[in-house]
Nucleic acid binder design. Structure first.
Lengths: 204, 204
DNA sequence: TGCGTAAGCGGAACAGTGTTCCGTATAGTT
DNA sequence: AACTATACGGAACACTGTTCCGCTTACGCA
């Protein structure tokens, strides 16, 4: 659950995610957690444009409480996003332990694709210029590229896939494919992702 | 000024752009024109998320009038977009008459780039799933690909550029470059577009 | 244990959206 | 000139994000 990002540029946002910064009252931490999980659920169901009040209601919290911890709506969005990026990145290490290299890779790509599935509307937000989103892309790459890189290396080491695929490029491709969702056939994303993995297996 | 699109799928939107469909009162047509130009200006300055009231005020028209002609805000956005796509596409034929092949091509690509410059925020709207935007991409391609194709053919015919560049791909490239604007250096778009044209000239 | 207080809470109120409604004005016809 | 379908304007409505402030409570300290 805990973030593993090295430094969380101080002064940008307010809320405390994991470790204590300077003594946070227990009820406050409880509310922050409730908001984070409620927001994640609401965003997944209705997109990132869901009304703030839907979230506070689901979290059983007043709107004032939300704005105490996240001064802007976009700060909450960014926090949820970081939180889920971290969760997804951490899953890579877990899969690497539990499964053999290629299966770990496949499972993680599915997980990654699931991550994108709950992010409809965020791609637009990213381009909005809101400063709250400014360093989300960097966090995204900073967490995902090493995670994918490790999985690829392990599979390549075992001689199960090619060695000449750059993790950042594969990541970008999966992201592009997963984002293009609307007006496209249901299974499109799955098929394309699978195709990429098969491509990795091909030794030509 | 007039639209050249063949069929304007009936029943989708309401407002009359150019030719009369079934007798439009003179004052109504006047207001539609005022709205269209006012909206274009406001969108260019503030992006497509600009408040409706800014537009009606600039057009000297009540909000009710707007909604009479464009039942939804997005219908107005779509109408302005189509209008400007048409204007830009028509410019291609004009340039082809007035200038020699390559200069006509260059001038039109600049014009196209100017078109994208006034479209900040629309890329996001396109992905929003609003049915009003559903066939805008098709209209975009339907008008721009032939326009660019003609310019490329003429220049290639005159032996001034290569013949192996697909208009749809070049169009896509210019669009991608022109959309990537924020957080990038000022002259980036110009430099990249120019680079593409120089690439066309190169005969290897 | 009990107290004082800073930290935190809730939700009513505010400001700014898109959209609807309806009484009034008028273009085009007879 | 009179008549009426069409169109107009802008106040009012519903729904946003955000602020404000009186009340509550967790927690350090006697």
């Amino acid at each position: 659950m805990n973030s593993s990002a090295p430094s969380a540029e101080p002064g940008t946002a307010t809320a405390v995610d994991g470790a204590a910064d300077r003594r946070v009252r227990a009820d406050a931490q409880r509310n922050i957690d409730a908001l984070l999980t409620a927001a994640a659920e609401v965003f997944a169901e209705c997109g990132v444009d869901a009304p703030v009040r839907d979230i506070t209601k689901k979290a059983g919290v007043g709107t004032g409480t939300l704005y105490r911890h996240y001064p802007q709506r976009s700060d909450l969005v960014a926090a949820v996003y970081r939180h889920e990026v971290d969760a997804c990145a951490d899953a890579a290490a877990r899969f690497a332990e539990e499964y053999e290299p290629v299966e770990a890779l496949v499972r993680w790509l599915e997980r990654l694709q699931g991550f994108f599935a709950t992010k409809r509307g965020l791609a637009s937000a990213l381009h909005s210029g809101d400063p709250a989103y400014e360093n989300l892309p960097a966090h995204f790459r900073g967490r995902f590229v090493p995670a994918l890189s490790a999985l690829l290396d392990a599979a390549a080491e075992a001689g199960q896939i090619r060695k000449d695929v750059r993790p950042d490029e594969l990541l970008h491709a999966v992201a592009q494919i997963s984002m293009a969702a609307p007006m496209l056939d249901e299974g499109y994303v799955d098929r394309m992702t699978r195709l990429l993995v098969d491509g990795l297996r091909y030794s030509g």
